[in-house]
Design a protein around this nucleic acid. Structure first.
Lengths: 149, 149
DNA sequence: AATAGTAATTGAAGATTATTCGAAAAATAT
DNA sequence: ATATTTTTCGAATAATCTTCAATTACTATT
């Protein structure tokens, strides 16, 4: 076993999947060629960004999930997008939002456990421009990415 | 045009996709049959829950995204899972988490616009057991479901 | 209302891909 | 050491995707 599983998970998180036209055709009672045309149009127009897998994250060793609220310092406050974009490269981060209210940024992060999460915080969030963070730890996920767990 | 687009989006949100084994084989430099075996194992063991599409939600008319923090009343406080499970049926809800801290539940919701969101709140969140809610509106999404926007 | 132009639908053909099978190798358990 | 189970993988088959070209349905213009 040559760690195929881990490599598959990495690729499946962001893509490497494709529509099941035959199954859609049966479900929607439409010809495959028609669905093919419509799907390609959705892709061409950029309405579909990717086809990907959703995991039972506990089973793949990413059982720790948390939401991180971030406050920016006055000099970064006017440009949350710049700070947000710096987080794009971290694979542990599932989502990045610029939000209204008492906080400027909201991240959703997955890690192996609390220890791994703490390492992530030290590595990624100890950076100039961030004045305060608050972690909301998920005790239990009932649904994620529109998929029931 | 027989609203094929809308029906595709509905199915693609939760599934109706499948791995691209040939492309994975090329990328990982492994035989298709080997990958096929490993993928089926992941599915059989329940590590993979679904294969689905990720959208540019603004382009498909779901541009409004928000996170909702929920406080439960004392009589529901001890059983957030029961309340959370009642939200499972709403397709507007992308994720449901039971969380630590000042709030008991965190929902991620997508709607057409603020009006549609307000209708959702009235319809779904005016229910006994919920004492307080706080909405964090996303002004801009940089990443969602591990996919860059 | 008629026409021209564009976009969408579809059956059938061909191209590509997934799946199965069986045998061998590797890993695990006894 | 041996037996048992799991994993790998080439080759054949089955299934699916993709393209094509003709038809139909829309849209815009006059």
């Amino acid at each position: 076993m040559r760690d195929i599983k881990e490599r598959l998970i990495t690729l499946f998180k962001k893509g490497y999947c494709t529509p099941q036209i035959a199954r859609l055709a049966k479900e929607l009672k439409e010809p495959s060629a028609t669905l093919h045309y419509n799907i390609k149009k959705l892709e061409r127009d950029g309405e579909i960004k990717a086809y990907k897998a959703v995991f039972d994250y506990r089973k793949i060793g990413e059982g720790f999930c948390s939401y991180i609220l971030i406050n920016l310092s006055p000099d970064e406050y006017g440009n949350p997008e710049r700070v947000g974009k710096e987080f794009l490269k971290y694979d542990e981060i599932e989502s990045i939002d610029i939000i209204t209210g008492d906080w400027e940024l909201l991240l959703k992060v997955r890690a192996k456990d609390q220890d791994a999460y703490y390492e992530f915080v030290k590595r990624v969030l100890s950076r100039r421009g961030i004045t305060k963070i608050k972690t909301l730890t998920s005790l239990r996920q009932l649904k994620t990415e529109f998929v029931l767990l």
